[in-house]
Each structure stands twice: as structure tokens, then as C-alpha cells.
């Protein structure tokens, strides 16, 4: 059997098993959310029309406040997208204002420390500096950690992964009590879209393995890593509709003023993908890692079944 066929049959069996267990999916979900102090009021909050920090404030308030997710003394790690040596206007990296506000609220909720990092694609010094995130995060009192060397990563096992069985994850995540995933919504040449799940690629060292072993599956696989983010906050203040993830010019960018927040990573990405679809057609089924993650029981794509709060500012 050639490798492709083999992979395909593995995928099929896998799919069969997970559909059988569809009902269990929610229990896995609730399990991973037990880290929170109280149940959030909504499964997903979507906000439109404000500045990044204002939209975040609104969303977290609707979610019952940061205290719901961060407890006193927590060591918190925030993972924005800082992948590129691009300025804020290009929408290639998470908005620094959003990062600042999240850090502030983490401290207000009693976090003992907040760390910020990303395994960048462009030169990390330039990306950290020119994205504006390094500066913003430091000013807000967070520590900005390097992530450009293998020695900063720890090997962890990914038992629920299909293709990906182990991964090297940045120690800031591994050693944290809670972590928050803060992607930006962008088009992506290979994965079609990069949102919360694709943002996981910045916590791992060996991204080449992902690309070489079915990128979409590996993206879904890495999200099964047992330490889930307590929140996924999708920055859609600007969205990059074309030439992503790096972007070429301002014509790639739309000032869309949106923000999505959910503990359910699949729901967050589904919502953001639908939002993106208005700027440029992007059928959900093309972004196969989202459905793959649903199959792995990481959340639901069925937005009608969950409790969504929509707010306009």
C-alpha cells in the first residue's frame, strides 16, 4: 500500500470512530473547560464595530469577566500571532492593543505572571519589534520570551493526534497554569485560513513536520494537546483577505472590526471563517482542519446548537 492510501484509510477509520463517539465530544469539551472557576454564560461571544481593546472588554464582560478564566496566582501565557516582520496596518500579526488589554485584565484577575511569545516565521527580532507587540506587552508588564531556539521547547506527547504523536512545545506554555490563544484572522496559502487552530503552530518547534505530514491533519492534531487554552480570542479588527499569511500590500487587508471569543476552538474558528467569507469567498469545507478538529472531538462547527452572544458597538 502506498503511503497516501495508507493515510487515507487511517483517516477513514478515524472518522468512523469519531462519528460514533460524536456524543462524547461534548464531554471531552467540558472536561477541558474545567479549569475555569465558573461556567461562562455563553459558548461564544462575537463583537463588531469597535476598537480592538473595546471589543475585547465587551466580549470578556459578556463572558462573565476575566476572573472566570484566570485565578489568583496563575502563571499565564498569552500566545498572539507575531509571525511576521510587518507593521500593524498589514494585519499580519495580532493587534498589540488587544494584547495589551488582555495582559492588563489577566493581572487584574490576579495572574502572578504573564508571558508572551511566538515562534515567528520572519526574523524573530524584527517580528517582535515591528509588530509592536514586544513593546506593548512589556509596557503592560508581561515578559516577552524568545522562541527561536529548539532549547526553549519541551517534548510532549499528543496521544489523541492522528499523524502527530509528539511535539516540541514552548516551555512557557508547558509550564503555565493557563494560556490564552490570541490569533488574527487571515487567509493562508496552504491551510486556506489561519485562525485559532493554525495559531498553535507558533507554540511548536518543528513546523516542517506539520507541512510534511498533512498540514491540515497536524493542525487539528496539535489542538488535542491536553493543555487547552482557557480562551481563544480571534482578532478580526483587520483581516487579511488575500496573499496570507504574510501579505504583500494594504490591498490585502480589510478593516473589518470584529472579535470572537470562545473556549470552543472549533466554534471560534467556524464563526471567524464565516465572518471572513463576507470579505472573500472561503467555503468552510476548504478549511479542512476545522472539520478534522470537530472529528477529533475538539468542539462543534454547528453554530446553531451553541449559545452565541452577538454584540455591536
Amino acid at each position: 500500500m502506498d503511503r497516501r492510501k495508507f493515510l487515507r484509510s487511517v483517516a477513514l477509520t478515524g472518522a468512523a470512530i469519531t462519528t460514533m463517539k460524536e456524543a462524547d465530544a461534548m464531554s471531552i469539551l467540558s472536561q477541558s473547560f474545567q479549569t475555569t472557576n465558573a461556567a461562562a454564560k455563553y459558548d461564544l461571544v462575537a463583537v463588531m464595530g469597535g476598537e480592538p481593546e473595546a471589543m475585547f472588554r465587551k466580549a470578556i464582560e459578556e463572558m462573565g469577566g476575566m476572573k472566570n478564566f484566570i485565578s489568583k496566582g496563575d502563571k499565564v501565557c498569552i500566545k498572539p500571532n507575531i509571525g511576521w516582520d510587518q507593521p500593524v496596518e498589514m494585519g499580519a500579526n495580532t493587534n498589540p492593543k488587544l494584547v495589551t488589554e488582555i495582559i492588563k485584565q489577566c493581572f487584574e484577575a490576579g495572574a502572578s505572571e504573564v508571558k508572551v511569545f511566538d515562534h515567528t516565521c520572519d526574523d524573530w527580532r524584527k517580528s517582535y519589534a515591528n509588530s509592536g507587540i514586544e513593546d506593548a506587552a512589556r509596557k503592560a508588564g508581561a515578559e516577552v520570551l524568545p522562541a527561536h531556539q529548539e532549547s526553549y521547547y519541551k517534548t510532549v506527547s499528543i496521544p489523541k493526534g492522528r499523524n502527530l504523536k509528539t511535539a516540541k512545545i514552548h516551555q512557557a506554555i508547558v509550564d503555565s497554569d493557563k494560556w490564552i490563544n490570541v490569533p488574527i484572522l487571515k487567509n493562508h496559502g496552504g491551510a486556506q485560513l489561519t485562525i485559532s487552530m493554525k495559531n498553535y503552530m507558533g507554540i511548536v518547534w518543528d513546523r516542517g513536520f506539520f507541512h510534511a505530514n498533512d498540514l491540515q491533519q497536524c493542525i487539528a492534531d496539535i489542538c488535542t494537546y491536553e493543555k487547552r487554552p482557557v480562551l481563544n480570542i480571534v482578532d478580526a479588527y483587520r483581516l487579511m483577505k488575500t496573499s496570507g499569511p504574510r501579505g504583500r500590500s494594504l490591498s490585502d487587508v480589510v478593516l473589518s472590526k470584529g472579535l470572537f471569543m470562545s473556549q470552543d476552538i472549533v466554534a471560534a474558528d467556524t464563526a471567524a471563517a464565516n465572518f471572513f467569507n463576507q470579505a472573500r469567498e472561503m467555503p468552510l469545507e476548504n478549511v479542512t482542519h476545522i472539520s478534522k478538529a470537530q472529528q477529533l472531538g475538539l468542539g462543534t462547527m454547528d453554530l446553531d446548537k451553541i449559545n452565541i452572544r452577538r454584540v455591536r458597538i
Binding site: R4, L7, G189, G190, H211, N213, D214, Q217, R246, R248
Partner: peptide, 18 residues
């Protein structure tokens, strides 16, 4: 492998590879 990749185009600043 007939799986997604696109790492090259991801890194290309001019989208000379898209």
C-alpha cells in the same frame, strides 16, 4: 502526498510563489 502545505508561499514576501 496530496496533502496541503504551502509553506513556501507563506514565506514569500512578493507572492512570486503563490
Amino acid at each position: 502526498d496530496e496533502t496541503s502545505c504551502g509553506a513556501c508561499s507563506e514565506h514569500c514576501p512578493t507572492q512570486a510563489v503563490h
